[in-house]
């Protein structure tokens, strides 16, 4: 049985890689992507790339090789994203918790990251072709110096690109991000020299309702809102997160984009492992989003139509 399975998958692979079939598939993809471009497309998509290790284990290859294949899958998905009009892609490449993994694996991951990041950002490669700029988000001081240098170089090389953004969350956890944001705000609020005396702050609190008299040089605490925190997150200037996709059938966010998952973010959990995640699994999600968005727009239109034109129409008929 396994032998026949192996044989059939090999013939299938042979068939799929034969030039005419490849040509047809390529143009099919182009057609679908261009078609989707005409409809509603999410502006910000996030991926949790889970399952590289399990993929390696199940197909009997080295873990590092699994990560490499994961990167290849990512490159393909990125291309689909940018072609179809997604502006910001955020990926969870490395969690701060991942430092707990065996040292050799962490080192191997760092090496992969170094190679792939600089490769991605070369002239004429993916980032350049789609006008995407690279940003590495997270607790960067935790990284080794040589990795940091590569990151700096890669970021610098794609800085001028304005059409799209690739956020690579490198040593990242969402709690760390939120804490950093809060710490920044606290630091900002104390940048003034002298702390206010209780009576002063009391008077400012009472007068703030009538007029606006903030102690000069000190931040008005009441001016802190959700937006303030959002502006201090790593993803400050990105559009709100529309879809977050996690592969490998695990139903957790695992400390990723917790703050960014606002009320309407669609969370999608997929059963396939990340290296198996390809355009044919991604397109249905985009179509689904487009259909839902259109339905939402229709409902909104109906509601406003009822409010504005409904009464008139009733009187006419």
């Amino acid at each position: 049985m396994p032998a026949t399975l192996y044989g059939s998958s090999r013939t299938r692979r042979w068939l799929l890689s034969s030039p005419p079939v490849e040509w047809v598939i390529y143009y099919m993809q182009e057609l679908l992507i261009n078609a989707l471009r005409q409809g509603d497309i999410p502006q910000h998509v996030a991926f949790i790339m889970d399952g590289n290790r399990r993929f390696a284990r199940s197909s009997h290859i080295e873990t590092v090789e699994g990560h490499n294949m994961g990167f290849e899958a990512l490159a393909k998905i990125l291309e689909v994203c940018y072609k179809s009009g997604v502006r910001v892609v955020t990926i969870y490449a490395f969690s701060i918790e991942n430092f707990k993994r065996p040292l050799h694996e962490v080192n191997a991951l760092m090496e992969i990251a170094k190679i792939k990041l600089s490769q991605l950002c070369q002239h004429g490669d993916l980032m350049d072709r789609y006008g995407a700029s690279l940003r590495v988000l997270g607790n960067l001081p935790l990284l080794r110096r040589d990795v940091l240098e590569v990151i700096e170089k890669a970021t610098e090389m794609t800085k001028h690109n304005k059409k799209a953004i690739l956020n690579v969350c490198f040593p990242y956890t969402s709690r760390d991000e939120i804490t950093t944001a809060i710490r920044e705000i606290v630091t900002l609020s104390t940048t003034a020299q002298a702390p206010p005396s209780p009576s002063l702050s009391d008077s400012s609190a009472s007068s703030s309702s009538s007029g606006k008299t903030v102690i000069p040089g000190l931040m008005d605490i009441e001016s802190i809102t959700e937006q303030t925190l959002t502006d201090h997150m790593f993803t400050a200037d990105c559009p709100p997160l529309d879809i977050i996709i996690r592969t490998s059938g695990v139903g957790r966010l695992s400390d990723f984009m917790l703050w960014q998952c606002h009320p309407n973010t669609e969370v999608v959990f997929l059963d396939c492992l990340w290296p198996d995640f390809d355009i044919w699994k991604f397109l249905p999600i985009l179509i689904d989003w487009g259909v839902k968005e259109r339905r939402r727009a229709l409902e909104m239109g109906k509601k406003s139509g009822v409010r504005e034109g409904g009464a008139q129409r009733e009187s006419v008929f």
Partner: peptide, 16 residues
């Protein structure tokens, strides 16, 4: 799955 504004800090490892 849309979280509808569920407390973000607490949902870190929650099985959804």
């Amino acid at each position: 799955i849309t979280l509808k504004g569920y407390p973000p800090w607490q949902i870190r490892l929650t099985e959804i």
